[in-house]
Design a binder for these strands. Sequence first.
DNA 1: CTTGTACCCTGACCGC
DNA 2: TGCGGTCAGGGTACAA
Length: 284
Amino acid sequence: MPELPEVETIRRDLAAPLLGRRIERVRVHEEDLILGGTSRRSFQRAVRGRRFGGLERRAKFLLFPLLADDGATGPERLLRVQLRMTGQFALDEERPRAPDFRHPGVDFGLDDGRTLFYDDVRRLGGFDLLTPERWTAIERRLGPEPLSRGFTDGRFGRILAPLRAPIKNALLDQRRIAGVGNIYASEALFRAHIDPRAPAGTLDPAQVARLRRAIRTTLAAALERAGTTIRDYRAVNGRSGSYQSELDVYGREGAPCRRCEGPIIRLVQAGRSTFFCEDCQGAR
DNA sequence: CTTGTACCCTGACCGC
DNA sequence: TGCGGTCAGGGTACAA
């Protein structure tokens, strides 16, 4: 479900309240949610008794460094969370009773009396424990963070140049750019007036620059609005985002383009819907 | 290397 | 009301 702005919103919601908290109890209701072949027991053993040493985001992953505390020993570990399509967090003294939060997944009981609840209807997301070396190996394969300073026109151009895949598909590939997903790929291409079907390597320098800028402004605007809540995505404790009212093309098939009044078209690329305006983004 | 496809899973919605 | 088909903010394994 969530893309960079949604995951970053969750990170901001959780970072301060979790910092330094000790994990007293771990309940795994759904073993599916423990990824990477780790058993429920060894997951609990690795996590219980440690403290949250911060909260970071890279691409669409959340990373909790777990600090050793008295009674907790063992190698340094990062707890990685992937929300995939329907992962949600709540932080409270009691399990939330919202109708969209009734699939208990994993609970982390904390030393301040609260519990961090993870709920995931479709169970596509989950947790895994990574050594720093393993994380480094994974991280190396991710493209640049689009909101970072290092994401320049030159770098973006070099990333796209050799690719023959449609630009829309390239934007979804986390090895090229990290954190862009299906909503913001369509939105950024609309903003940049670029045809989603154009082979990535055929964009000229002006198009590369427009697209880079469009990606940044779209993601930043969505982050400002705490993300896009269409159906499942919620920030922490059920809070909705509000960027859905700003969407230009995503989910607007048949509706008039906000710029030229022409119909928004839906097509399928790599098995996923793309929305665009043929008149504003056609041909070039 | 690149690219495309199948799959994981549940639930909401649509047409009959 | 029920039933089948389609679709959903993602990532990965595997084949070509």
